[in-house]
Simulated assay, not measured.
Amino acid sequence: MRTSHSAFSASVIAAGLAALALAGCEYRPNRGPSRVKPDDNAPAWFSNPPIDARLIYAVGADPGHDRAKAMADARRNLASQLHVVLRSDGSDLDDGFVPTTAAGEPPLLIDDLPGVQLDKQFDAPSCLYVMITFNRAGWADALRARIDQLDGQIRATMAAAPAAPEAATTPVGNAARNYLALLPLVREREEQAARLRLAAGEAAVQTAPMSSAGLRQQLAAVAGLISVDINADPNLAPIQAQLNDAAAGMGLNIVAGNPQPALRVRLSLQEVTALNIDGLERLDATFVASVENGKDGRNLGGLSVKFRSSSLTDSVARERLNAKLMQRWKEYLANEFVSCLQRL
């Protein structure tokens, strides 16, 4: 009996010591990197990482002595220094911690930071500490190389576009095809340029052969040749004007009630359900857009997407639902809708 009691006491003491050890390496409540408070056993480099002109140092830790988690913590620390958020992490966005740049702007969202290496590791009784290095200059060199490659592809695509006389026969269709061919290249180029600004400063980024704004201007220059009738159902009446304005912003000629427009766009909000869940008003709805050839009625494409919003009041929930809908409508106009134009 005494032996059993001694064993029980020993296990309790061991558990208590383990808890005390873990308490010395606790997570910070604000979720900001580094997310672990160092204890007395932490190495000096954890609180004072080196400073280098070419390399960036970042530290991380894990009370569970898991190297992968400690490395992930260090990568979050590194991302915070660069004012970016890693898509592979995502936890910062999920738990409400959203870092901002010095100007108060949202951070750049990127897939990963290439070339991160483990520099130091120290396994203390209460915590595993790591320090990683990131070759900022090497990252900048890789970004410049990719931007140069994209610039070459953009110029080649622009050179392959139909000459003015040929384009004049089907100006809208040719402009739409050119837009769609260039858009992915231009967008990636702008993303890479944003990263290069972080890595090497504004002066390192050269002027692009084409921008997203330039593409929109080129398309808008001929989009006015297209008459568009936007027919929205009563559920969308509160934002009908905004829907029309977004389309007109692309340069389209919005003509309500035209018996035979070049394009007829039918918009509806379907399957609208309102529920009260735990004191919150929740709205679910499906936004449907259908684009037709105004002359023969052929379907040229469309969109169907589900939305959900919630709030303490029904009016605010509807405002949020409409805001989400408008954002998706603008994205649709700038992307999938242009595919309909290339068929004209």
Rank of each mutant, 00 (worst) to 15 (best):
T207L: 07
A204E: 06
L225V: 09
N244K: 02
G201R: 00
L225E: 12
M250I: 09
N244H: 10
A204G: 07
L215A: 03
L263F: 08
A262F: 12
Q270G: 08
G224E: 07
G257Y: 08
N258V: 05
V205E: 01
N244S: 14
A203L: 08
G214Q: 09
A223G: 02
A247W: 06
G201I: 03
A223K: 01
A256Y: 01
D229C: 07
P209T: 12
A256V: 13
Q240I: 03
G224I: 11
M250L: 15
I239V: 13
M250H: 11
S212N: 01
R266Q: 13
A241T: 13
R264L: 13
G214P: 02
I230R: 01
Q240A: 15
G214E: 05
L215E: 03
Q242S: 10
N253K: 12
A232N: 05
N253A: 15
A241V: 12
L225K: 09
A232Q: 11
N258S: 12
N244Q: 08
A237I: 12
N235A: 14
M210Y: 07
A200N: 00
A208R: 01
S211P: 02
L243S: 02
I226E: 00
I230E: 06
A220G: 08
I239Q: 03
G257A: 13
V222R: 05
A208G: 10
A246L: 12
A213E: 00
I239C: 03
G214S: 06
R216F: 11
Q242G: 03
Q218G: 04
L252G: 02
I226Q: 00
L219W: 01
A213C: 02
A248S: 15
A223I: 04
R266K: 15
I239T: 09
L263Q: 08
S227M: 05
I239A: 06
N235V: 04
A213S: 10
N253Q: 10
